[in-house]
């Protein structure tokens, strides 16, 4: 066989393979939503648990490789408006607690209990943009893990990737008090949970959020493996959530100063 014949046969094989791939891709592109609004509405329409109890393991890793892992028990109710965190590990912070309750007035009361100091302190000055316990997440981002971007951003559908995975762009609405002026996020239709979110400020990519694992619990898809990377510093934080309990009645006294000290 000549080299020329070889080449022609290889070209024919490539053409067939490409056609087959395109056919498969076409099948996979069968999408349910055609606009950003439809995607966002679908995300928001997804049922969410009324309460969540989970074990959270948070590992903060600096660019130098030094890291710190803390394990916490988290109680959350009212779509995250009431939240209690109790530190389980490491031993030197065991028993420490953090309580955050949004009042009817819209103000958030924040308290911390440190057993070594033996008293509860109310904390002021913590802003939504502040780092959550020195991690790469801010309070704002921790509360948006389920992809609740709709209120602060005007969204447009940029493209649809095989899957289908919707790529949306959110531009901060005028008057928004968020930290970022632009986000780009990818939402697989299968979960309607963002799998990757890029946060931009003044045209610069600031952080990248990746959700690489979800847990199906009680009919809900909950993010279980989450990573946030701060681009400039090279640091990142990973959160592993497990032992989910959803829609369990959490006694009202859990979100109190007394329970915090218990």
């Amino acid at each position: 066989m000549t080299g020329h014949q070889d080449h022609r046969r290889a070209s024919a094989r490539a053409l067939i393979a490409t056609a087959f791939a395109l056919a498969l891709a076409g099948a996979a592109f069968a999408q349910s939503y055609t606009t950003a609004k439809e995607v966002v509405d679908a995300m928001e329409a997804k049922p969410a648990p009324s309460t969540t109890i989970a074990t959270m393991s948070m590992t903060i890793t600096a660019a130098s490789g030094h890291s710190l892992t803390r394990t916490m028990q988290v109680w959350s109710a009212d779509e995250g408006r009431s939240q209690l965190i109790k530190f389980l590990e490491p031993a030197d912070v065991r028993g420490s607690g953090f309580l955050s309750v949004e009042k009817a007035s819209g103000d958030t009361e924040t308290m911390i209990y440190l057993p070594a100091l033996g008293r509860v302190r109310r904390v002021a000055g913590g802003q939504k943009q502040d780092a959550f316990f020195g991690s790469d997440f801010s309070y704002e981002e921790i509360s948006s893990l389920s992809g609740d971007f709709g209120d602060d951003f005007e969204t447009t559908l940029l493209e649809t990737l095989p899957g289908p995975v919707y790529v949306l762009e959110g531009i901060a609405k005028p008057g928004s008090d968020g930290s970022y002026d632009r986000i780009v996020f990818q939402v697989p239709e299968a979960t309607l949970l963002p799998q990757r979110v890029e946060f931009y400020r003044a045209g610069q990519l600031v952080k990248v959020l990746t959700i690489s694992g979800t847990s199906a619990v009680g009919g809900y898809d909950l993010p279980s493996v989450i990573r946030m990377e701060t681009v400039a510093s090279g640091s990142y934080t990973t959160i592993d959530q497990s032992d989910f309990k959803v829609d369990e009645a959490i006694p009202a006294d859990v979100f109190t100063e007394r329970f915090l000290q218990r």
């Binding site: 912070v93 420490s96 911390i112 070594a116």
Partner: peptide, 16 residues
């Protein structure tokens, strides 16, 4: 004075 105080005061400072 103790390891716990060191860790918890740092935790508090990281928070606020």
């Amino acid at each position: 004075a103790t390891r716990e105080e060191v860790a918890q005061e740092l935790l508090l400072y990281q928070l606020s």
